[in-house]
Design a protein around this nucleic acid. Structure first.
Length: 925
RNA sequence: GCCUGGGUGGUGGAACUGGUAGACACGCAGGACUUAAAAUCCUGUGACUCUAAAAAGUCGUACGGGUUCAAGUCCCGUCCCGGGUACCA
């Protein structure tokens, strides 16, 4: 902590390991439902006191480091003022785009967004109002304000990340969560999709991470196809689909739109309107409920609208189905039930026709399953007949383009990244509003620090906490943006700030940037694969485009350390109760807070719940709900009996038995929970071994081990547990082995640690004798192995090698300075505290950190002979020592002359003799 | 389903480019010291067969094949486990 502070860079992520102090602070002063506990606050303070670090607590929390905030905000402004130029595939300053508008008014040049912007003349541009211009430019900015669908939790007053939502309710507290479209600041990472993908080829990252990023970006090549409406409606009613299989165009039997598709309203004829509206309303709420009930139901509705097949001119039905995602491609698909599994399911369910257009393998039954393989000959398809699928795709696209029905296109799964958070902590977004137009602050006014507020909760009207700030206005009159940046903003560039942390005039100076360039080795968790590790690449490419840095990728090599796993405990909560009101048909979901045992949970999961228990849960749910809403009448109650596995803090659990009183204090359930206990009267929690993490409440503090064995022992033990990249469950079974090793190590230094016969060069004691050849060999063997281990990041074997070394030196009773001094240096990176201590005992005034790594002298390692294993047909039979200077032929001759050899040959003559010098002798009989 | 990493003693793991499988530890068993316990130290410890013992032999790196003088390591197929991801058209 001190060291970081010395660099004057303190990132919110840096706080994280101390237990989210910002949230702790919030708890201490306000009532924000944060994740942490009083105990952690106390511990954090204690830690800070221990290292003698005092600071302005309140200010630290508000702005961990103003200068760092400043440059994060500065980068945001650069993103806001930049757009993406498809022509040269890079970011450019906004002025160039504006100049282009002013010159020829054509907004369609290099549109980075999917939204079509209408053509207008240069004169029109000049006549646009400021607001109109602002809206227009928003479509191009790399940081933009746009509508985004988010998980909104009204009770908590915040947007939740997907992983914070479980089965339609918030993981903490179980409050309902709705999907809502809200204006959100977003970053146009999609503009960099292609470069983020191709850039992976040049970096030394694990294949798993690269593949995860590739899947996340999800590049697919296909084409868009426009279907004209039947009956000559305006081109605005054309439906555009995206497909990767244009070769199956002649197999289309209907089109499907996502329920949220903007055209739904326009194309539906009055005859079908009611039905369609009802379905769209149903679909909105469906996904969450479906997930709860865990049933994959096929749903959809016919719109009553028809389109025309671009080639055959056939009439094609248009349907709405919620298996089509609004957010991907065009939000509409051409359905080819014969060759797409999802279309097949849908078509079967609604009795829509199948049209085969690809030759099937022998014995394939199209009625049962679609044939999705991208292999085979195209049939029944006019000009595509007889072609192989791949060729057909190519030809079909060119034909479509020729006829102007659509065009070849690359689509990405990657979405833009939502950048605003309805929270207090985090860098404020440096934006203010003038007449409703968002504008960025001037650089000289940065940093924008977080204002003081009285509470960390959202306002009564649902605005973020920053809306509570009094008189918080830019230049005294303009409202600031009220959301703050997410944690990944600062973490996307902190490596650059480390290069030049005190720079006041730039995020980092040119000279420093040129000197340090990229990160040589980045060690981090694999869980950041599609988050931080993608964003940091994005920001790096962006800053390079603007010419601020010269590197294209942030980190050359990436190693994912394995996660230490912990044993988590679970409670099983029954999913919400649905209530239909007496006066309005509105549906409501509430959480009854009923907890069932593992065995009941399993029954539910297998759909085999005992009817008696099911009824009991139902009535318990109703009575809990009535208690919450006294005197109200309801039409109908329905309990969706489905279980959420909820993590419960391991400190509330003893031997898997839940302390129910402690649980009630700890949880945030709205109603008094009801527990279905085991026959023994206890509630037994479930358990699982998984990643150790705050959010899983299974963190075991290392403090106890530090107190008992010391920090070095903990550190060595963690390394000794296994390879760096491997995940391993935390258990302390083997720690005594490491502890014994450290004690043995200390004993070797007796002449220097014992006050009686303290040795020093001036006063030649027992430690000052000259080392023997054997001792030097042990030392240099260790140096060599440890150097190799460090190169391979194989720290677990280093610890073994130290153990071997210390065991051997102990056997020789070697406690000579000439051996121990270099050994101390080599061990220092692994056990820094004990090494520092021993270094001092050896009489050094300066820290061991500054000592020179001992030079490896190979001459001590040279062997003159080797004890060869002699094997017959690959089976080792005996050993014999040969001089290493002997040639293959000499060894061959000598081996054959051996008594043992004759014994194992059993009179047969050897067919062949293989001699690998220094390794093995193998005789083939 | 797809992608990805793995499967070695009772346990964590070692064996780098094919060349003595099980290093180093934990655990366990026996012993020394001790009134006793803890701590410490010593010895043994993959399975099986044979033997009074020593010695010797057979099997053995998830399973089934293959390449090779030689396979934990390379190739083909199968099974299992962990991680990621999922109506992405």
């Amino acid at each position: 902590y001190k060291r970081l502070k010395g660099f004057n860079v303190l990132h919110p992520m840096g706080y994280d390991s101390f237990g989210l102090p910002a949230e702790q602070y919030a708890i201490q002063t306000g009532q924000h439902p944060a994740i942490t506990t009083e105990k952690n606050i106390a511990r954090y303070r204690e830690q800070m006191d221990k290292i003698g670090f005092s600071f302005d607590w309140e200010r630290e929390v508000r702005t961990s480091d103003p200068s760092y905030y400043k440059w994060t905000q500065w980068i945001f402004i650069q993103l806001f003022n930049s757009w993406y130029n498809n022509k040269c595939d890079k970011a450019e300053k906004m002025e160039t785009l504006i100049a282009e508008f002013e010159k020829n008014g054509n907004a369609n040049v290099n549109a980075v967004c999917d939204e079509e912007v209408k053509n207008f003349s240069a004169a029109d541009w000049k006549n646009f109002s400021e607001k109109e211009r602002s809206d227009m430019l928003m479509h191009y900015r790399l940081a933009y304000l746009g509508e985004a669908i988010v998980n909104w939790c009204p009770q908590l007053g915040t947007v939740l990340a997907n992983e914070e939502v479980k089965d339609g309710v918030s993981e903490r507290g179980g409050y309902p969560v709705e999907r809502r479209s809200m204006p959100q600041w977003s970053l146009r990472i999609t503009a960099y999709a292609e470069r983020l993908l191709t850039g992976l080829e040049d970096i030394d990252w694990s294949e798993a991470i690269k593949e995860q990023q590739r899947n996340w970006i999800g590049r697919s090549y296909g084409c868009s196809i426009r279907f004209k409406s039947l009956g000559g409606k305006s081109p605005e009613h054309d439906i555009e689909v995206f497909t990767t299989r244009p070769d199956t165009l002649f197999g289309v039997s209907y089109l499907t739109l996502a329920p949220e598709h903007p055209l739904v309203e326009k194309i539906t004829p009055p005859t079908h309107r009611d039905e369609v509206n009802a379905y769209v309303a149903y679909a909105k709420n469906r996904s969450e409920r479906e997930r709860m009930a865990d049933v994959k139901k096929v749903t959809g509705v016919f719109t009553g609208h028809f389109v025309i097949h671009p080639f055959t001119k056939e009439k094609i039905q248009v349907w709405i189905g919620d298996y089509v995602l609004a957010g991907y491609g065009t939000g509409a698909v051409m359905a080819v039930p014969a060759h797409d599994e999802r279309d097949h399911t849908f078509a079967r369910h609604f009795g829509l026709p199948l049209k085969q257009v690809i030759e099937l393998p022998e014995g394939w039954n199209l009625e049962k399953a679609s044939y999705d393989e991208k292999k085979g000959k195209v049939i029944n398809s006019d000009f595509l007949d007889g072609l192989e699928v791949e060729k057909a795709i190519e030809i079909c696209i060119s034909k479509i383009e020729e006829n102007n029905f659509g065009k070849g296109k690359v689509n990405y799964r990657l979405r833009d990244a939502i950048f605003g958070r309805q929270r207090y902590w985090g860098e404020p977004i440096p934006v203010y509003y003038e007449n409703g137009i968002p504008k960025t602050m001037e650089e000289k006014d940065l940093p924008l620090e977080l204002p003081k507020i009285d509470k960390f909760l959202p306002t009564e009207t649902g605005e973020p906490p920053l809306a509570r700030a009094q008189d918080w206005k830019y230049k005294g009159k303009y409202e600031y943006e009220k959301t703050t940046m997410p944690g990944w903003a600062g973490s996307s560039w902190y490596y650059l700030r480390y290069m030049d942390p005190h720079n006041d005039t730039a995020f980092a100076g040119k000279e420093a940037l040129e000197y340090w360039k990229d990160v040589d080795l980045y060690i981090g968790g694999a869980e950041h694969a599609t988050g931080h590790l993608l964003y940091v690449r994005f920001w790096t490419k962006f800053l390079k485009d603007l010419g601020y840095i010269s590197i294209e990728e942030p980190a050359r090599k990436l190693i994912n350390q394995g996660m230490i796993q912990g044993r988590s405990n679970f409670v099983y909560r029954v999913a919400p109760l649905f209530v239909w009101g007496a006066n309005s048909p509105e549906e409501k979901a509430v959480l009854p807070a009923i907890f069932v045992t593992k065995s009941i949970r399993d029954q539910i999961a297998h759909g085999a719940l005992d009817e008696k228990i099911s009824n009991e849960i139902h009535s318990t749910g109703i009575s809990l709900f009535k208690k919450l809403n006294p005197g109200k009448e309801f039409l109908k109650f329905e309990t969706i009996i489905h279980c959420n596995d909820l993590h419960v803090d391991v400190s509330l659990v003893n031997n898997d038995i839940l302390d129910i009183d402690k649980y009630k204090k700890w949880s945030q359930d709205i109603v008094e929970p009801t527990f279905y206990n085991e026959p023994s009267g206890e509630y037994i929690c479930g358990w699982e071994v998984e990643k150790m993490s705050k959010s899983k409440f299974n963190v075991v503090s290392p403090d106890d081990i530090c107190n008992e064995y010391g920090a070095d022992c903990l550190r060595l033990y963690e390394m000794f547990l296994g390879p760096l990249e491997q995940s391993k469950p935390w258990n302390t079974n083997g720690i005594t082995g490491v502890y014994n090793f450290l004690k043995k190590l200390w004993k070797l230094y007796e002449p220097f640690t014992s006050p009686l016969e303290r040795s020093s060069p001036a006063n030649a004691g027992p430690g000052e004798a000259a080392p023997s050849k054997q001792e030097l060999k042990i030392l240099h063997k260790t140096i060599k192995k440890v150097q190799d281990d460090i190169d391979r990041f194989s720290f677990n074997t280093s610890v073994s090698n130290f153990m071997i070394c210390v065991n051997e030196l102990t056997d020789l009773k070697c406690n000579k300075r000439a051996i121990l001094e270099p050994l101390t240096i080599v061990i220092a990176p692994y056990a820094p505290h004990i090494a520092e201590e021993l270094w001092e005992k050896l009489g050094h005034k300066e820290s061991i950190t500054y000592a020179q790594w001992p030079a490896l002298k190979e001459e001590y390692l040279v062997e003159s002979a080797f004890n060869y294993p002699v094997s017959f047909n690959g089976k080792t039979r005996f050993f014999h020592e040969f001089d290493l200077s002997l040639s293959k032929e000499d060894i061959e001759k000598e081996v054959l002359a051996l008594e043992d050899t004759r014994k194992y040959l059993e009179g047969k003559s050897p067919k062949k003799i293989i001699v690998v010098p220094g390794r093995i002798v193998n005789i083939v009989v």
